[in-house]
């Protein structure tokens, strides 16, 4: 039997969950014996296979139109979708913006910051993705496995992927359900 294919991507997050993924250290070698690691932000291949993967992993919340597209594409191309980390599960740190609104947040970041002079300007290139109300991944597409944590512990990520690779849905327990 072919090894299950796994792809990941990141949205509005800090890359910390992927760092935590790397924190499993030499167990990555064990993991690659179980799964075929395909497109990820830290490998050469950047987009999940067109003919689909078994497990898709998303880090980060949905904060703009680009994140939304990436999430929808991943959902379309994977059988089991994992929301990795507090931002993907709850909205997380980017969702703090929702309490003030995107306009206020942009003004604070690009105009009012103490280190900004009069030339401060909110980026308005039409190529830029359109900002949205920040949402957890599950508000945009169906999520099958929630792995909260800021970031989730490497042990938890290894456990969840190892379980999925062996055809089991991971249990919700002290290891896999730890918010921060």
């Amino acid at each position: 039997m072919a090894k299950p294919k796994v792809a990941s991507d990141w949205l509005a997050g800090c890359a910390g969950c992927h760092m935590s993924f790397l924190d499993m250290d030499e167990r990555i070698i064990e993991l690659t014996k179980l799964v075929d690691l395909r497109a990820t932000p830290i490998t050469d291949l950047k987009e999940p296979d067109i003919d689909g993967v078994d497990v898709g992993i998303l880090e980060g919340g949905i904060s703009n139109s680009h994140n939304e597209e990436v999430a929808i594409r991943m959902r379309e191309r994977c059988k089991i979708l994992v929301a990795l980390g507090d931002c993907a599960v709850f909205g997380g740190v980017p969702a703090m913006r929702n309490f003030v609104g995107a306009d206020e947040a942009l003004k604070r970041a690009y105009i009012e910051t103490e280190s900004t002079d009069e030339s401060g300007k909110i980026p308005d290139d039409p190529e830029l993705a359109v900002l949205q109300h920040v949402r957890p991944v599950s508000d945009v597409v169906k999520v099958d496995v929630f792995l909260p944590g800021c970031a989730p512990h490497a042990d938890a990520i290894f456990h969840v992927l190892a379980e999925l690779a062996q055809g089991r849905m991971p249990e919700v327990n002290e290891l896999t359900n730890k918010w921060h």
Partner: peptide, 21 residues
Amino acid sequence: LQQAAYDEGMNHWPITPAYKP
């Protein structure tokens, strides 16, 4: 509150927060 969620095995929020400051 967090402990109560853990005890119930709740690992995400079914209802999106209101974001009212």
